[in-house]
Design a protein around this nucleic acid. Sequence first.
RNA 1: CGGAGUGUAGUGUAACGGCUAACAUUCUCGCUUUGGGAGCGAGCGACUCCGGGUUCGAAUCCCGGCACUCCGACCA
Length: 415
Amino acid sequence: MKQSQLFTKTRKEAPKDEVSKNAQLLIRAGFIDKEMAGVYSFLPLGLRVLENIKNIIREELNAIGGQEMKMTTLQTKDVWEKTDRWREDLDDGIWFRTHLNNETELGLAFTHEEALTKIMTDHVSSYKDLPIYAYQFQTKFRNELRAKSGLLRGREFLMKDLYDFSLDEKQHKEFYEKMKGVYKNIFDKLGIGDRTYLTISNGGTFSKYSFEFQTLCDAGEDILVYDKEKGVAVNKDDFNDDVFADFNINKGDYNFIEEKSAEVGDIYTLGEKYAKAIGLTYKNEKGEEIPVYMGSYGIGVPRVMAVIAEIFSDEKGIIWPESVAPFKVHLLSLNQNEKAEEIYNKLNEEGIEVLLDDRDKKPGEKFADSDLIGIPYRIVVSSKSLEAGGVEFKKRNLEESEIISVDDLIGKLSE
RNA sequence: CGGAGUGUAGUGUAACGGCUAACAUUCUCGCUUUGGGAGCGAGCGACUCCGGGUUCGAAUCCCGGCACUCCGACCA
């Protein structure tokens, strides 16, 4: 893409109504736009990052038999009443409610267990139908009492939610364990694997414990108690004798430290609760009616994006991991648009995603913008570089640059 | 939802109760410049969040509302 065609502009200063680093950087660089507290639009660059994150998740989920679908946001109350989640006391912090013109009450879904369980009643009848792993990327609405920290806690946000529909607890548990590995792969690919911990946490209503994936991050809302060497982590809220006993943790054997972290994913066992309430059952070999055993698995996509921006940034701007970067290469033309366009075409033919800065701007501004936007590789074409024999090649996260010939560029980028 | 703070050109800031609301930046035009947000000049851009009140006079003080930020509570 040519930057002269990109409608977003960068800005030197962050708006004063944003304090969080992720929102400041993402707004300054033109990735997102704030509509209101906790509600952000994704601009072209931001959408590219979001889609890259989605694709990494999608690839991993499809590999284990996940089937992508998309449910509705608008929900009628009947199914939610069956699970007792239409309650008015859930208005604070959870429900956005609305209604049809005929006054039928509706809610904007904050999660989709009920909706999907109900759908499954039309498609599951035999043990032969199970297990099923269905997921979606869906906008969730949560009427948070206090949105905060930019993209970290929004009122409208994209979530990947996968649900497993299993024959019994055993089958569910096997999948649950498998998902721990899948999530690890996902966070590794997203570039935050080395600071993301599988974390013991409160199980909520349906089981005593659940697991979260917590990423070390100063802007996070949680406090992680963890042993880096042994890879054992517990949410500080749940760091107690009960946990030690249940997980066979002898505190003396560990070197626990505390650090702030953000919950980027969670995996829950739901058990039979939803199936029983909504009537999702199957017939086993003996013809007996058995409730389906369920689990749910979430990842907040914009939150992951925010955490990456928080972690991978310096005083000049963002430093995107290659896997999620909006483009692989930022090609800056310093008054050499003809030559630059030649290189641009060549890279595009190789399938390398390039943002070509062909704008009529001063070098300083182009450099500053490039650092702010944070594309992993920067290539400068200038009279100076051409005299030296090619183009200047620099990684965003390194100080050094080198001159390489245009012919060597492709090889260099596929290293 | 409790507490605190803040609302002034697109953005960031300034202005004692008193001149035509100032400066920087963005943007437009001209000239110069071309490796780290350059220089000179000219110009556009604000019912000072909304509504009341006090006052000869309100961006400024008071009341109400709304919005935003932070702390807390909440957070399948």
